[in-house]
Nucleic acid binder design. Structure first.
Lengths: 170, 170
DNA sequence: CTCGAATATTTCGTATTCGAAGTTCGATAT
DNA sequence: ATATCGAACTTCGAATACGAAATATTCGAG
């Protein structure tokens, strides 16, 4: 099942970084970026399997998570499309399915009738909680090699990166 | 364009983590995982735009990168499907397109005629290099808030996580 | 040697996604 | 007031992805 074990994951990663550096990337950059994507790629595989139990696709999860993070603030289909990295037209169909299943509800915005407001139903909130708890199992397992101080340090460094994300476009 | 600036990205992130913790996640876990996905989500958006200049989709990029990382070792369509997180049947069509464009080439495996061996062409290698150099611009910009020692520390911590990834399935 | 199971790829039907119009409503200027 | 532009959502056709079945080859058991 798992790939060739002749090399450790470390060595495999180092070789990948070397490939990117040879192609013109910076070492200190590629070491971080390649590592980040190695982690998310593996996590994505697990999410697919975990969420299948809940009859949930990654796309539907992104909607659920976006609405949950918004709290009691309703979001529009456009906002959800942006947050989910999909085209607005795709969100239409996705919301059709999810509202048909009773996870979300759409209602017109009285103050601006071009807008539609989307919010989680009680079932939607319940499924969100269920998914978070299931995900936390594999996520926790993923980080088991790090001590609590190391996790905080890792989070701190990532949060520095996050702080500058929005300014890059400009 | 950019979302509401009333809150800093930091505060936004902290609020997101609080939502996951309230739903049953562990604080030290969610702080890291949420941050990792915040970074990759933004990077994914940039990749789409950057790669559009090279007439390259993210799916095609994943094939290019997998073959480049394999070096002179050929990969089979099945292996590429695994590495790209797509179904084998999807890889068939993707390789059809890419070989039609002259980026990759397929040849039968003489030692096992059920297999097909895929490798990069000269044009494929050139496009890979071009894409790496373009990507490195935004990636480098993404990490500009970190000093060189901080980048090494971030890479070190992520590499600890990577080392344990394959053992989680078991 | 032959039969059956396993592996690798492709084909095919269905579902999801995207981008480009189409439609409705709101905002601004004249 | 109304005309025009822009914003938000949806509809529609084309492209992409998935899963199941089909095809071809290898491997192992009898």
């Amino acid at each position: 099942m798992a790939a060739k074990r002749r090399r450790s994951a470390q060595q495999e990663h180092a070789a990948d970084v070397a490939t990117y550096v040879a192609a013109g990337g910076e070492e200190s950059v590629q070491r971080v970026i390649t590592a980040v994507y190695a982690v998310t790629k593996k996590l994505d595989q697990w999410y697919v399997r975990q969420f299948a139990d809940l009859d949930l696709t990654q796309g539907e999860w992104s909607v659920l998570a976006a609405l949950a993070r918004a709290g009691d603030t309703c979001l529009t289909p456009s906002q959800l499309a942006d947050l989910s990295n999909v085209a607005p037209s795709s969100m239409t169909h996705r919301l059709d399915k999810m509202s048909g299943r009773g996870l979300v509800q759409r209602r017109p915005d009285e103050s601006n009738r071009t807008r539609t407001l989307v919010s989680l139903t009680t079932d939607g909130w319940a499924l969100f909680s269920e998914a978070v708890r299931e995900s936390n199992v594999v996520e926790s397992d993923t980080l088991r090699g790090l001590s609590t101080p190391e996790r905080h340090e890792l989070a701190r460094l990532l949060e520095i990166v996050i702080e500058g994300l929005d300014d890059v476009d400009a």
